[in-house]
Design a protein around this nucleic acid. Structure first.
Length: 252
DNA sequence: CAGCCGTGGGC
DNA sequence: TGCCCAAGGCT
């Protein structure tokens, strides 16, 4: 839920989710459509599908217990490098480089003196992060949590609170006078008018309906027929929407 | 690896 | 107000 989503927005959904499905097996025993419905408006609803699929795999291949190693975790759907490292580190105390957007920004500023990291993680950045990771499992896990929290609370993207930063005295970016970012332009994704927005609109119709909805209800939601059709086809292909009978759509 | 995959709050 | 961005993953 936290992937690309602010903590404050996740909290209420997360709480209701665990109330309803306290264990991976409980989630796996529901339909994927119920997961999509409970996901609500968190965004990137394929994450709900993947979480349901991961729960199913945990139930069927791991005896219902969340696996504890990075290799087992990253093999689960929707679990990539960051999430696997985070779970292994935070939940199981293993030593891993936990490189999320917060840590990347903290390391960019403190170690390389740049206001923002590169667009994507590269080898050099990963190696640099590894060089400052403490040796012991316990210290590494504490380091991962601390560096993430520092980025989330103090060393934020827009308004870093250097005045209250515990490592301001060893920060390369601060020492350099907090120079403005001068790397390649950081691109912000368009949203209005994109297929992504269209998919969101169409899925909302199906998600918020009691049972199946007729094609006409969906068509009324988006003006451009070509884009609307493409979006609906892709939603069905992704498994977010099912055509339960010709011209009628529902959650899977 | 660049581009795609949602949504809404802050400034 | 529009822009920026948020505990990424997948292809």
């Amino acid at each position: 839920m936290l992937q690309q989503t602010p903590v404050a927005r996740v909290l209420p959904v997360h709480e209701a989710w665990l109330e309803r499905w306290p264990t991976p097996s409980a989630l796996a025993d529901e339909t994927s459509g119920e997961a999509v419905r409970a996901w609500g408006r968190l965004g990137y609803p394929r994450r709900a599908l993947r979480l349901h699929a991961a729960a199913t795999e945990i139930r069927d291949a791991h005896g219902g217990e969340v696996p504890s190693t990075y290799d087992q975790l990253i093999a689960l759907p929707g679990v990539g490098d960051y999430t696997a490292a985070a779970i292994a580190s935070f939940a199981f105390g293993r030593r891993h480089v936990v490189l999320d957007t917060n840590v990347r920004r903290v390391l960019a500023r403190t170690l390389t003196g740049a206001e923002f990291p590169a667009a994507s993680v590269n080898r050099a950045e990963r190696d640099l992060a590894a060089t400052v990771l403490p040796e012991s499992d316990d210290d590494a896990a504490a380091w991962a949590a601390a560096s993430m929290e520092l980025g989330a609370v103090i060393c934020t993207a827009a308004r870093p609170a250097c005045d209250s930063c515990p490592v301001v005295d060893l920060c390369a970016w601060h020492a350099a006078g907090r120079p403005a970012y001068d790397g390649p332009a950081r691109k912000v994704q368009d949203y209005a008018g994109t297929d992504r927005q269209c998919r969101g609109r169409l899925l909302a119709v199906v998600r918020d309906a009691e049972g199946a909805v007729p094609r006409g209800r969906i068509d009324a939601e988006w003006h451009l027929a070509e884009q609307r059709d493409r979006a609906l086809v892709s939603l069905v292909a992704d498994g977010l929407v099912a055509e339960v009978e010709p011209g009628w759509f529902a959650l899977p």
